[in-house]
């Protein structure tokens, strides 16, 4: 354990012919992303409070919660609750209310507090969130803006450091990853909120990182093997970096796993999305980004007699 490593993912002389499966990989990815797009439009994302606006109150009652009493107390306060539901233990109550442009969420959340106090004396409010409609629209806009600008900056950076084929195939792959993550969110009913935007951006950063490492090796091999066909060269590069790719995704996966298990309600959704993103991002480096590079660069990257990249750092 303190000397030579005990375990390896693959032997160093591994030669898996990844490019042979390129069309299968691309087709699978396209189908999954298309399915995710359909899911995005129907039934659509479950928007979290940040982006939907409204009120969520979590209460802990002193005994088992009496939902009927809470519902009728809310009704006497003229509050139309979207849901009064249990979560966690029998004394945990979650109350959700929708809000539109005219709702004064600020006053409503106090009414909910009063209603809970009347229905269940001794109950404590664990959490109360109220987001007005104007704020939620702004939060959503900012979230999407952060995603869009990040993608553009990643495109620009890879273009600057590599060539446009690399940048374009990376960003296309990232968009495919992104759509699948959206599909995952729809299927699992994990609420899409600001924290989820953070998760998606982290996935994007991680996934780009993975692609950059493979590309870096492709760039190096383009110089090293001047006559090797691009297809073989890509296979070689992927195989050479395979141990690293699997090693890093493993450590990130292992780091995120406890969050999913112990992170509690507020973080486990975030962590599951991360775990999904790590698997998708790692496989897309091999099965999507490289084949796309082959499709786009087969003619150009190899026929070019100039060195493919000007310099090595």
């Amino acid at each position: 354990m303190f000397g030579r490593p005990l375990l390896r993912f693959v032997r160093n002389d591994t030669h898996i012919n990844f490019m042979r499966g390129r069309f299968v990989g691309l087709a699978t990815s396209a189908v999954l992303s298309l399915a995710s797009l359909i899911l995005f439009f129907h039934p659509g994302l479950t928007l979290g409070l940040d982006f939907r606006g409204g009120i969520v109150v979590e209460a802990k009652t002193s005994g088992p919660a009496d939902f009927g009493k809470i519902r009728s107390a809310l009704a006497t306060h003229n509050l139309k609750a979207e849901g009064v539901q249990a979560f966690g233990g029998p004394d945990d109550v979650l109350i959700r209310l929708d809000a539109d442009e005219t709702t004064n969420t600020n006053a409503v959340v106090d009414e909910v507090r009063h209603a809970v106090a009347e229905a269940q004396p001794g109950a404590t409010i664990v959490r109360a969130d109220a987001v007005g409609a104007s704020v939620s629209a702004e939060l959503l806009r900012n979230g999407l803006l952060a995603l869009g600008i990040s993608l553009l900056m990643i495109l620009a950076y890879i273009w600057f450091r590599f060539e446009w084929e690399f940048a374009l195939s990376a960003v296309i792959t990232l968009v495919l990853d992104l759509t699948k993550t959206v599909g995952f969110l729809v299927l699992t009913h994990i609420e899409f909120d600001l924290v989820m935007v953070a998760a998606i951006l982290t996935i994007l950063g991680y996934s780009t990182n993975d692609k950059v490492v493979v590309y870096d090796r492709v760039r190096e091999n383009l110089r090293r093997y001047r006559t090797m066909p691009l297809r073989e060269l890509l296979d070689l590069s992927i195989n050479e970096t395979l141990n690293r790719t699997l090693g890093t995704s493993c450590t990130v996966f292992l780091a995120a796993l406890p969050l999913a298990i112990f992170g509690g309600a507020s973080l486990s959704g975030f962590a599951w999305v991360m775990l999904f993103g790590i698997v998708v991002g790692t496989s897309s480096s091999i099965f999507i980004a490289a084949p796309l590079l082959l499709l786009m660069g087969e003619k150009r990257l190899r026929k070019d007699t100039r060195p493919a990249v000007q310099q090595e750092v």
């Binding site: 900012n142 952060a146 900056m153 950076y157 600001l194 951006l201 982290t202 950063g205």
Partner: peptide, 22 residues
């Protein structure tokens, strides 16, 4: 350096456009 630069860019964006805990 290359692989960290991209992650860095994504999170600077998140810092600029995010609010609160994010």
């Amino acid at each position: 350096l290359d692989s960290n630069a991209t992650a860095f860019l994504a999170h600077v964006m998140l810092f600029v456009f995010g609010t609160g805990p994010v």
